[in-house]
């Protein structure tokens, strides 16, 4: 909820918008006015009525739209990575670990769902609205539940920080059409496909910015540590990947190099005073995964 003074500031912001010289569309302005009135904010409604207008497409993408975008990206991730690995018990286990971490992450009020991709490469992906994937190859490399928790925490970090949505909002396609809504998707399916394909290319082929990856590494250990997992497990895991992957170019394209990632994780552990709890749960991990992998 907005308190009185911040409502005032919000109104000031709107006036600034109006004076910034945005030209607009009466229909959107009317809708904004209605939305504000509908939410009981008569003052905001009046401000919108009396001032300029807003461009809907430049506002943050709402959760409902995020779900549609996430689902479309998820379809492409599944298609490109050999489908989902059909092991209900292992999938449930991965979901239990992931949801335990998500329970106390910075965006705990949305649903997170986890699936295993039937692929030998070592990778993990997060699409918007909490569609998270790990490859069978990655699970084979993981040695305990604390490592898995941090990997899933990293992916959850991409979702809490809306990294892919950020890519979509910055993309040129959107700048041209100024609209990513469901109405837009339904009316312009080809343009929607371009938006999704662009996001998938970034996610699967080019990789996100190094800054976003390092931010997710930090969040990964913080989220896993909040649940009580030993944060140093993630260091061990990244170190193992460094040994395994060597100078694999394809892998480094989508992930910043391991020395940067390791130092980001180490400094997070010391700065945030994350406790080395010793909780790794290696037995529970092998019991749940051994036969299924």
């Amino acid at each position: 909820m907005l308190n009185r003074s911040s409502r005032g500031l919000f109104a000031v912001g709107l006036v600034l918008l109006a004076t910034a010289g945005l030209t607009g569309c009466a229909e959107i302005q009317k809708a904004a006015e209605g939305a504000a009135r509908g939410s009981g904010n008569e003052r905001l409604a009046k401000t919108i009525h009396g001032s300029g207008t807003l461009i809907g497409g430049l506002l943050p993408i709402g959760y409902e739209e995020e779900q549609t975008i996430g689902q479309a990206i998820a379809l492409q991730v599944v298609a490109r990575y050999g489908g989902v690995y059909d092991q209900p018990d292992l999938t449930r286990y991965v979901n239990l670990v992931g949801r335990s971490v998500a329970l106390t992450c910075d965006r705990a009020d949305i649903d997170y769902r986890f699936a295993i991709l039937n692929h030998d490469s070592i990778n993990a992906f997060a699409a918007p609205a909490g569609y998270i994937f790990v490859t069978r190859g990655l699970l084979k490399t993981v040695k305990n539940e604390a490592e898995l928790a941090a990997v899933l925490g990293h992916e959850i970090g991409h979702v809490t920080k809306k990294h892919i949505l950020d890519v979509i909002q910055r993309s040129k396609q959107i700048a041209g059409v100024a609209e990513t809504g469901l109405a837009y998707a339904n009316k312009n399916p080809d343009a929607f496909k371009n938006v999704i394909d662009g996001a998938v290319k970034k996610l699967l082929d080019e990789g996100l910015d190094q800054g976003k990856e390092l931010e997710s590494d930090r969040l990964g250990v913080i989220f896993a540590s909040r649940v009580g997992y030993d944060p140093t497990a993630y260091e061990t895991f990244l170190d193992r990947l460094r040994t395994l992957k060597g100078d694999d170019r394809a892998f480094f394209k989508t992930h910043p190099d391991f020395s940067n990632r390791l130092s980001a994780v180490r400094s997070t552990i010391s700065e945030q005073k994350l406790k080395a709890t010793g909780i790794l749960l290696a037995d529970r991990f092998s019991r749940s995964s051994n036969e299924a992998l």
């Binding site: 939305a35 497409g57 709402g62 109405a183 339904n186 009316k187």
Partner: peptide, 22 residues
């Protein structure tokens, strides 16, 4: 916590809704 929809995102959705069909 920002939540599923913060106020601005919810407002943005309101704008887009006006022409939403299915």
């Amino acid at each position: 916590p920002a939540g599923g929809d913060n106020e601005l995102a919810a407002l943005g959705k309101g704008f887009r809704r006006t022409e939403a069909s299915g």
